[in-house]
Amino acid sequence: MITWPCLLKLDGDDELVYLDSPEQLNAECQALIWGQDDMVIDTQGHCYALQAGANSTVELSLLPQTLNVQQVTELIQKHEFSKAQRCIIKIQFLSVQQAIAALVE
C-alpha cells in the first residue's frame, strides 16, 4: 500500500515533483507527458509505475525496486542542483520520509 506523501520522478529529468495525495498525482499527470520509466516513490522508498486508469486517472503498480535513504537523498541533491539554489553537500536525511518532506519546506 502506498504511503503518502510521495515524489514523482520523471525518467531523464532531475526535477522531482512533491505529491501529497492521489488527487495531486492525477492533477500533475494531466499536465505532463509521462512514460513507462517514470515512477512514484513513497515515504517508505517503495517505487510504483504509472499506468493510465479509467476516466483519465493514473493508477500505480508496485515495482520490485525499493530506494533507501541514500538513494532518495541523491535524487533530491540532483533536484536541488538543477534549481541551483542550495549547496547539495549539506543535503542529508535520516529517513526517506524526512527526505520527501524536505521538498515542501
Results as ranks from 00 to 15, higher is better:
1 M>S: 07
2 I>H: 09
3 T>R: 05
3 T>E: 03
4 W>S: 01
4 W>M: 02
4 W>N: 01
5 P>F: 07
6 C>A: 15
7 L>Y: 13
8 L>I: 08
8 L>K: 02
8 L>C: 00
10 L>R: 10
10 L>C: 06
10 L>F: 09
10 L>I: 12
11 D>H: 05
11 D>S: 07
11 D>C: 04
11 D>W: 06
12 G>Q: 03
14 D>F: 11
14 D>R: 10
15 E>P: 00
15 E>M: 10
17 V>I: 15
18 Y>Q: 08
18 Y>D: 12
18 Y>L: 15
21 S>N: 07
21 S>V: 09
22 P>G: 14
22 P>W: 10
23 E>L: 04
23 E>Q: 05
23 E>H: 02
24 Q>D: 09
24 Q>R: 13
25 L>R: 10
25 L>V: 14
26 N>V: 09
26 N>G: 05
27 A>F: 02
27 A>W: 01
28 E>K: 06
29 C>N: 09
29 C>V: 13
31 A>R: 12
31 A>C: 01
35 G>R: 03
35 G>A: 04
37 D>M: 12
37 D>L: 14
39 M>D: 04
40 V>S: 05
40 V>M: 05
40 V>N: 04
41 I>T: 04
42 D>P: 00
42 D>A: 03
42 D>Q: 02
43 T>L: 03
43 T>H: 00
43 T>G: 03
45 G>C: 05
46 H>S: 05
46 H>R: 06
49 A>P: 00
52 A>R: 15
52 A>V: 15
53 G>L: 10
53 G>H: 06
54 A>Y: 06
54 A>I: 12
55 N>G: 01
55 N>T: 01
57 T>D: 06
57 T>M: 09
58 V>N: 00
59 E>L: 13
60 L>V: 15
60 L>G: 14
63 L>G: 04
63 L>R: 12
63 L>A: 09
65 Q>E: 08
66 T>K: 04
66 T>E: 06
67 L>A: 14
67 L>S: 10
69 V>D: 02
70 Q>Y: 14
70 Q>C: 08
70 Q>I: 15
71 Q>K: 07
71 Q>F: 12
71 Q>S: 11
73 T>F: 13
73 T>D: 11
74 E>M: 13
74 E>A: 15
74 E>T: 14
75 L>Y: 07
75 L>E: 01
76 I>E: 06
76 I>K: 08
77 Q>H: 04
77 Q>G: 06
77 Q>K: 15
77 Q>W: 03
77 Q>N: 09
78 K>T: 13
79 H>L: 01
79 H>W: 03
80 E>T: 04
80 E>A: 13
81 F>S: 11
81 F>K: 13
82 S>V: 10
82 S>W: 05
83 K>R: 12
83 K>W: 13
83 K>N: 03
84 A>H: 12
84 A>C: 09
85 Q>W: 05
87 C>V: 08
88 I>T: 06
88 I>F: 02
89 I>F: 01
90 K>H: 01
90 K>L: 02
91 I>A: 10
91 I>K: 08
91 I>C: 08
91 I>D: 05
93 F>V: 04
93 F>Q: 01
94 L>H: 09
95 S>W: 02
95 S>T: 14
97 Q>G: 06
98 Q>T: 08
98 Q>N: 07
99 A>I: 10
100 I>F: 15
100 I>Y: 14
100 I>C: 14
100 I>W: 14
101 A>K: 02
101 A>V: 03
101 A>L: 08
103 L>W: 05
103 L>P: 00
103 L>R: 04
104 V>N: 13
104 V>P: 00
105 E>W: 02
